[in-house]
């Protein structure tokens, strides 16, 4: 059974693209067939985060306008043969595609993949409507800050009124030392305010920046954020895994397995 997941947040810069790239890669690493679609027309970025920017020939708008076959526009990932990217167009704008066209394209593609992940643009205008049109479920990304929580709340309301059946929350850029000081809302605070199920906690880890610089995903790497994203993938796939204890640092077993992987 295939599942179409939209990654959205309302506010920009909270980690939608990073989340899309890492959840997509993590699911592919688990052996799933995954398609990542960048729906941010005019501001494409998922390709650079994935390190696939040099392999793009056709894009989402080309597919919708019939300039190419869907297969021609899909970019295969460097590391995982079951992971594909449908890049967005950089020189067009959001009005180049409409929700009905997105639904048609996704209906056509969904049987060929286990997961289709849609990276949604910021805002609540046409780009957002395009991204959610064909989705079965949503991952809402927020940070523990007032502005992004307010936007997440608005987005959750819109997803509910668009009858997205399943909405889960990812809290990104958590700084445990600030929470301990009483200067950052805890994950419990955020969940209490937004009242949607929590599916992931991601620490503010500098390894995410390093990985993005290199065009590599952080998921599955021997880092806190890498482990956090891998756990999200397990939960997306329906497996229950406990939330990470950021204070404890990366688990003993990850460290051990990391040593073996290196050698």
């Amino acid at each position: 059974m295939s599942e179409v997941i939209v990654v959205t947040s309302g506010k920009g810069g909270v980690g939608k693209t990073t989340t899309s790239a890492n959840v997509g890669t993590g699911l592919a690493a688990m052996g799933k067939k995954v398609l990542l679609i960048d729906t941010d027309i005019g501001l494409r970025n998922l390709d650079v985060v994935m390190g696939l920017e040099s392999r793009i020939v056709y894009n989402l708008v080309d597919v919708v306008e019939g300039n190419c076959r869907i297969k021609q526009a899909l970019v295969r990932d460097k590391r995982y043969p079951t992971l594909f990217l449908l890049p967005s167009a950089q020189t067009r704008d959001k009005s180049a595609v409409n929700p009905a066209q997105m639904v048609k394209m996704i209906t056509h593609l969904r049987d060929q993949f286990d997961y289709i992940i849609l990276d949604c643009p910021a805002g609540i205008e046409q780009g957002f409507q395009n991204a959610i049109a064909g989705a079965d479920r949503a991952l809402v990304v927020t940070t523990p800050e007032v502005s992004s929580i307010r936007d997440a709340d608005r987005i959750i309301g819109l997803l509910e009124s668009n009858e997205i059946q399943k909405i889960d929350l990812i809290i990104n850029r958590i700084r445990i030392e600030m929470i301990k000081r009483g200067d950052m809302m805890s994950s419990d605070d955020v969940v209490d305010i937004l009242s949607v199920p929590l599916i992931g906690l991601v620490p503010d880890d500098e390894n995410v920046v390093i990985a993005t610089n290199q065009g590599e995903p952080v998921v599955g790497s021997n880092t806190l954020a890498g482990e956090a994203y891998r756990n999200i993938c397990y939960r997306v796939n329906g497996k229950e895994v406990p939330f990470l204890d950021f204070e404890r640092g990366i688990s003993f077993w990850t460290k051990i397995s990391g040593i073996f992987h290196r050698s």
């Binding site: 800050e145 007032v146 929580i149 307010r150 200067d183 950052m184 809302m185 305010i193």
Partner: peptide, 18 residues
């Protein structure tokens, strides 16, 4: 704490938003 301030502000804000 700034955490409590943020939480209180958001609670009121979101009710009127909703």
């Amino acid at each position: 704490s700034s955490r409590e301030i943020a939480k209180d502000r958001l609670k009121i804000l979101l009710i009127s938003d909703r």
